[in-house]
Amino acid sequence: MTDLSSVARRALPLLDLTDLSDGCTDAAIDALCARAETPVGNVAAVCVFPAFVARAKKTLAGTGIAVATVVNFPAGGDDTVAVEAETDKALADGADEIDLVMPYRAFLAGRPGFAETQIVRVKRRLGAAHKLKVILETGRLVEPAAIRAASDLALGAGADFIKTSTGKVDVNATPAAAEIMLTAIRDSGRPAGFKAAGGIRTAADAAVYLDLADRILGPDWASARTFRFGASGLLDDLLAQLGHGAAAKPSAY
């Protein structure tokens, strides 16, 4: 039987605590940043819309918590110049990590070179201190072969992490997609990370993904440098498993 308190202790510092809700406000960002510092340790990062990067950066100064933001979100569009400009503004405002939605529609339409070029061009704008997470939107890629090809493409284009989902479609993170992506990271032979996002609400959910990472990449692989959970509600259940609140209801895949 899985020891959920051990899972919670392991998962909490891997969390990108997220608010990408429609109608997000300054007050919501302040609350998010306050939640990111918990009685049992800090999360890895907060993930917010670009408009809130500067506020989050100022609020979290000195905490060691990174500020992540999203670009080309959520549609994964084709306007690379606009995506570059969005990235530049986010970096100027203090973003530490950029979560880029790969232009997955172009990829699915037989234009992988376009998708690769956009990733390369965004990656070039990031200095060594900034991480690029490429969102594949696996729920739209659907087929295992497409998920593997997109993973290989993003890793080859310089992604520091590959991420499952935006959380804005009907199918987001799944263990099946995660297994393909983690295997691609292993096979790439380069230091890259994995982020599971969308629909991960409980410590039991988190355990599924950590177990996959342990099996495919080894029990010492997953750390904040290589593994993240993107979620808004997961923190509450992790804290509950550690004696700080009420546990969430189980999820079903």
Rank of each mutant, 00 (worst) to 15 (best):
K195M: 08
K195S: 07
A196L: 01
A196K: 00
A196E: 01
A196N: 01
A196R: 00
A197W: 00
A197R: 00
G198L: 06
G198Q: 10
G198R: 09
G198A: 09
G198Y: 06
G198I: 06
G198P: 11
G199C: 06
I200E: 05
I200C: 05
I200N: 04
T202S: 14
T202E: 12
T202A: 12
T202W: 13
A203H: 14
A203Q: 12
A204M: 02
A204D: 07
A204C: 03
A204E: 09
A204F: 01
A204Y: 02
A204T: 04
A204G: 04
A204I: 01
D205Q: 04
D205G: 06
D205T: 05
D205F: 09
A206Q: 08
A206C: 13
A207L: 07
A207P: 07
A207V: 06
V208A: 03
V208R: 05
V208T: 10
Y209W: 12
Y209C: 12
Y209L: 14
Y209F: 15
Y209V: 12
L210Y: 11
L210V: 11
L210D: 09
L210Q: 13
D211T: 14
D211F: 01
D211R: 14
L212Q: 15
L212S: 10
L212D: 04
A213R: 04
D214P: 06
D214V: 06
D214H: 08
D214L: 04
D214M: 07
D214C: 09
R215V: 10
I216D: 01
I216M: 03
I216Y: 02
I216T: 02
I216H: 03
I216L: 04
I216F: 02
L217H: 08
L217W: 07
L217I: 08
L217N: 06
G218Q: 12
G218N: 13
G218A: 13
P219I: 12
P219F: 11
D220N: 15
W221F: 15
W221R: 10
W221Y: 15
W221Q: 03
A222P: 00
A222G: 03
S223R: 10
S223L: 04
S223V: 03
A224G: 08
A224R: 14
A224V: 11
A224Q: 06
A224I: 03
R225F: 02
R225V: 03
T226E: 05
T226Q: 05
T226W: 05
T226A: 09
F227V: 02
F227D: 02
F227N: 01
F227R: 01
F227T: 00
F227E: 00
F227H: 00
R228Q: 05
R228P: 05
R228N: 03
F229N: 11
F229C: 13
F229I: 14
G230P: 10
G230C: 11
A231Q: 09
A231S: 15
A231L: 08
S232K: 08
S232H: 07
S232I: 07
S232R: 07
G233Q: 11
G233T: 15
G233L: 06
G233M: 01
L234W: 14
L234K: 12
